[in-house]
């Protein structure tokens, strides 16, 4: 990999706008060598403005309108059923040819909770236990069909190999799912899972960790991304104006705000990439024009310093991140059980 991993979190104003604008922004990012897009998702109203479409739907559109960029969606276990989310992420992975990712959203959100009460379900009730139970359960569901289980033999009429499909019978503290899932194992095996580094129970299951404060990033045994909100313009003064006009948001635990001209912003990112354990950045692009500004102004600087290839990546999102394709967990468990028996 040349230089840090770059993930664009596109601004809500852009994502809530016309489809053509979203597709254009994604295409520009892809052409500039950005590795993935992160599509936020929060099922609760924004005061005074319309929210973007659901991330999985936007991601599906982008999957067929781009070719190489990764597509990471936010989804909170509190607001979906594991069987439904497993198939949505798997479908996105199939449609995109192995470019899907999931950032687990875990925090309490009373406004979203208030939209999702059912007779048999209170989102706030078992939030933590459910959130922890979800990720490994999705991995297991994706593994209910082994690679190659669909054989499609026209001459014999054999459509599947029944020995390569498995019932799961998951019975956990908050979730019960029998399985199998109703679609083939995703191209990546499992879509890439991102989780906050600061949530140990989620982090344990994640493929990629996301942290805030770069200076305090702690080395991890898997890719680690820092979250940065860049306010960038041709001059430092104009960048400060943008930052001020946005209400001058400060850096916090989850997010480093970076304000400056292209050389300053690129220099700081390069320094973090060189001197901290960070493997890359989630760039939270704050304003409608932020994606374009970052691509046009900062990426050339990073490129010049050898910190960005400038060419679209190739392969699955896992391959772009240097992650291995996971082995099938259910097949492995069955093999172990079989070996013990014999």
């Amino acid at each position: 990999m040349t230089g840090p991993v770059l993930v664009y979190q596109l601004p809500e104003e852009l994502l809530a706008g016309p489809a053509a604008g979203i597709v254009a922004a994604a295409g520009q990012a892809e052409d500039a060598g950005v590795h993935a897009l992160l599509l936020g998702d929060r099922p609760a109203a924004r005061p005074g403005r319309a929210a973007p479409p659901a991330a999985v739907v936007t991601a599906s559109m982008l999957a067929v309108r781009t070719r190489r960029i990764g597509l990471v969606v936010d989804a909170a276990p509190a607001y979906c059923e594991p069987y439904n989310l497993a198939r949505m992420l798997a479908s996105l992975d199939h449609i995109s040819g192995g470019r899907a990712g999931w950032r687990m959203a875990a925090g309490p959100d009373p406004e979203a909770d208030a939209n999702h009460h059912r007779e048999d379900y209170d989102p706030a009730g078992a939030r933590e236990a459910r959130t922890v139970e979800f990720p490994p359960l999705l991995r297991d569901l994706w593994d209910t069909w082994e690679d190659g289980a669909f054989v499609h033999e026209k001459d014999t009429g054999r459509f599947i190999d029944p020995d390569r499909v498995h019932v799961l019978d998951h019975v956990g503290p908050t979730l019960q799912v029998r399985g199998p899932l109703n679609l083939a194992r995703p191209p990546q095996g499992h879509p890439v899972m991102l989780a906050p580094a600061g949530e140990p129970l989620l982090a344990a299951e994640a493929d990629v960790l996301v942290t805030g404060a770069p200076e305090r990033a702690v080395a991890a045994d898997r890719p680690l991304l820092g979250t940065v909100t860049p306010f960038v313009a041709e001059t430092a003064e104009r960048a400060r104006e943008l930052h001020a006009a946005a209400g001058a948001p400060p850096s916090d635990e989850g997010n480093a705000v970076l304000t400056g001209d292209p050389v300053q912003v690129a220099g700081q990112l390069a320094a973090w990439a060189d001197r901290t354990p960070l493997d890359g950045f989630v760039l939270r692009l704050p304003l409608p024009g932020s994606a374009e500004a970052f691509t046009d102004l900062v990426l050339p600087e990073l490129r010049a310093a050898g910190h960005c290839s400038g060419a679209p990546g190739a392969g699955t999102l896992r391959e772009q991140l240097g992650l291995a394709r996971p082995a099938n967990r259910i097949a492995a468990r069955l093999a172990t059980a079989g070996a013990k028996r014999s």
């Binding site: 999985v56 599906s60 559109m61 309108r65 798997a90 479908s91 449609i95 109703n182």
Partner: peptide, 23 residues
């Protein structure tokens, strides 16, 4: 698999519908 193979598996419909609409 022999009596009704269409019942076994498919892409999830929201994402499939979006991919169709985009084309």
């Amino acid at each position: 698999q022999h009596s009704n193979p269409a019942q076994i598996s498919r892409l999830e419909p929201y994402s499939t519908a979006m991919a169709i609409a985009a084309a």
